[in-house]
Design a binder for these strands. Structure first.
Lengths: 100, 100
DNA sequence: TTGGCATATCGGGAATTTCCGATATATCTT
DNA sequence: AAGATATATCGGAAATTCCCGATATGCCAA
């Protein structure tokens, strides 16, 4: 668990927004409900539209968040569904209380 | 309280080390005891020696941490004493649990 | 198997960060 | 007032990040 990598991943407004949106996919990505695998997370395209950035940028941002361990992904067909990794946030909260 | 600014301040190995050292000045800066104002924190010079970087870099790093609210400083004579702002870490831990 | 769609990766220009040496500012001593 | 000491600020080279367009890859449907 690389602390610097985690904090770098969190050092960007759009990436923070994405994490926040993923807290409530039901609310923030209503179109996503059409996907059968909604419970696996939200696919890149929906996040991209909401972020208002290019597909490549959003894909890269999601990779950054995943390398930091803050989200996890599931590939289903042509879609990659991303969701938060809540354990990572619990761990980070504790790290700040004890290690930082 | 700018979250991005806080995470950027934490996105550097040396700055994380400084914060960690300041958790126990007694242990990490024994020379500092000669200073009468030891309870005000640790002065820049001691931190600089321990960090092994130049004076200007360490001074800049401490400013960065202070702008993020993670440390506070007290000027006494020619010395500036830096100490952790524990309230900020408590707040950050909660922010990660609830806002991020 | 060909075309379309979702995502990932590549290459790069612009902006920011890292860390330095030089210099400025403030305080203390003599 | 002059020199010494502690810290802050400035200017800049190198590395990294931001975000893009173009292209590659993988999967699906006709």
């Amino acid at each position: 668990m690389d602390q610097v990598e985690i904090f770098k991943a969190l050092s960007n407004k759009t990436r923070l927004q994405i994490l926040n949106w993923l807290k409530d996919p039901d609310l923030n990505f209503p179109e996503q409900k059409q996907h059968a695998n909604f419970d696996h997370g939200v696919c890149v395209g929906q996040i991209q539209v909401k972020a208002g950035l290019t597909q490549s940028t959003v894909s890269e941002y999601l990779s950054t968040l995943q390398r930091a361990g803050l989200v996890k992904s599931t590939r289903v067909g042509q879609w990659t569904y991303y969701q938060r990794n809540e354990e990572a946030f619990d761990a980070l909260s504790k790290i700040i209380q004890t290690d930082i």
